[in-house]
Amino acid sequence: MTNIPLDYETLRLIWWLLLGVLLIGFAIADGYDLGVGALLPFAAKTDEERRVMINLIGPTWEGNQVWLVLGGGAIFAAWPALYAASFSGFYLAMITILLALILRPVGFKFRGKIRDPRWRSMWDWGLFIGGFVPALIFGVAVGNVLLGVPFRLDQTMRAYYDGNFFGLLRPFPLVAGLISVSMLVSHGGVVAAMRCAEPVAERARRYAMLAALATTVLFAVAGLWVAFGLDGYVVTSVQQTAGPSNPLTKTVVTEGGAWLHNFRAYPWMTIAPALGVVGPLLAALALAARRYWAALAGSSLAIFGIISTAGLSLFPFLLPSSINPEASLTVWDASSSHLTLFIMLLATVFFLPLILAYTAWVYRVMRGPVNATSIGRNPNAY
C-alpha cells in the first residue's frame, strides 16, 4: 500500500526486532523474580529470611510480568501463524507454565495467613515451583525450536501438531532449559545479594556465582552442540520478503551447522554469543569482588547475549518444522498484513515508552535494602 510510509519488508524486520526486545525485556525484568523464587528455599533458612526474599520481589513481580503479556500479544497480532502453530503445539507446556506462575500470587497472599511452619513451608516450595518451572520450560521451548517442531500446514494454512509434551524433553532442549534456569538464578541471585540483609545476601551471592559459572559452561556446550551435532534449516528458494504471507511457497532443506550461517555471513553478529559467554563470567567476578552493579550489568548482558544468539541463529526462521521443512514459518511469510503491522507499530511507539517510564519509576520508589526492619515498617509487607 503506497500510503504507508514503511515498506512491508522493513515492517516485518522491525517487528522481528521488537519481538526480541520484548523477550529480552521479560527475561531481565521478570527473570530476576523467577530467579529469586527458585533460590527461595536455599538462600533463606528461617521464616524471617524468607519473608525478606519474598518482599524483595513482591511489590514488582506483577508489573514485570507485563513484558510476558506484551510478548504474547505481539506474537498473536504480528505473527498469527506463529501464534497458532506454537501455542497449539506447546499447549501442555504453556499450561504448565501458567499453572506454575499462578502459584506466585497465590503463594504471596496465602503464605502469611497462617503461622503454622508446615503451611508456610508448603507455599515456599510453591513459590520455588513458580520460579523454577517457567524458567526451565522457556528454555526447553527455545531448544525445541532450534531442533525443529513437528507441525505441518494444510492448504488452508491450518497447523497440525504431531508431537506430545514428553517429546519436548529431549537432551538438547533440556540443556537449553538448564541454561535458562542458571541464567535467571544468577540474575535473581545478584539482585538478592544487592538488596537483602545478611546472611541471605551472602548465600544469594554464592549461589549466583555458581549459577553464573554454570551458565557459561552450559552455553558453551550448547554452542558446540549446535555447531557440530545439530542440523539447522536453510531456505533454498528465493523468498519474496515483501510478498504475501504464505509459508508454503518456499523450499527448505536441513543441513549440519546451518544455524551458524548468519554468523559467518555477518561477523558482527558474533557479539551476541560473546556476550553470552563473557556476561556470566563478568557477573561471577563482580560478585566475588562484591561489586553488585557490575554483577547486575554482567547478568543482564548474559541474558541479552544468550537470547540474541538464539534469535540471530534462527533468522529468518521463526518456527522450523521438523516433519515438513517447507511449512517452516519465517519472518517473511508468517506476519500479519502490511497495514496491521504499521498500526501496531504506531501503538507500540506510543505505549512502550510509557511502560519503560512506569517501570523505572516503580524501581526508583522501591529501591533500597530489604530487611526485617523495612518489612516491619511496611503494613503491606507479605
Rank of each mutant, 00 (worst) to 15 (best):
P59I: 04
A77K: 04
K109N: 15
I179E: 03
A204G: 09
L275R: 03
G243W: 04
M122G: 15
T46N: 03
T249G: 01
Y161P: 00
P171G: 03
Y358E: 11
P280A: 00
Q155H: 14
S322R: 08
Q239N: 12
V36R: 07
F87R: 11
K250W: 04
T2S: 14
N64L: 04
P173R: 03
P247A: 06
T251M: 13
R115E: 15
R203Q: 08
I343C: 12
Y358V: 11
T46Q: 01
P171A: 02
H261C: 11
A135F: 00
L40G: 02
T215G: 05
E62Q: 12
A295M: 08
G223L: 05
P320D: 08
R120V: 13
I24N: 07
L213K: 03
T359M: 14
I54S: 10
M344V: 12
V181E: 10
L296A: 11
L23M: 13
G58A: 13
Q155S: 14
Y83P: 05
L352D: 09
F228V: 09
W225N: 10
N371A: 08
M269N: 10
S237W: 01
T156M: 13
K45W: 11
P59Q: 09
N324D: 13
Y161M: 01
R291F: 00
L174T: 10
E62H: 12
L230A: 05
E9M: 12
I323A: 10
V252G: 01
L174I: 04
Y91A: 11
L314R: 05
M122S: 15
G276I: 00
R367G: 12
N55L: 02
G243K: 05
L19E: 06
E255Q: 13
I323L: 13
A84G: 07
G189D: 08
A286V: 01
A272S: 11
S308W: 06
V238F: 13
G131E: 04
I114N: 12
S237K: 00
H338M: 08
V21A: 14
M183C: 13
L19H: 05
L356V: 11
F128I: 02
R115D: 14
S299C: 02
A211I: 00
W79V: 09
T348A: 15
N262Q: 04
L345P: 09
L146C: 05
I271D: 02
S308D: 03
L136H: 07
W15M: 06
D162G: 14
P117N: 09
V331F: 02
F350S: 14
G243I: 05
F42G: 05
T270N: 01
A274D: 10
I375P: 07
V66S: 11
N262M: 10
P150S: 06
I323Q: 09
G37W: 00
I28V: 11
D7P: 04
V349S: 08
T249L: 14
S374L: 05
L178W: 03
G305E: 02
A43F: 06
L260W: 10
F351W: 14
A242F: 07
F128K: 02
A258H: 07
G73Q: 08
A192N: 02
R118E: 14
L68R: 08
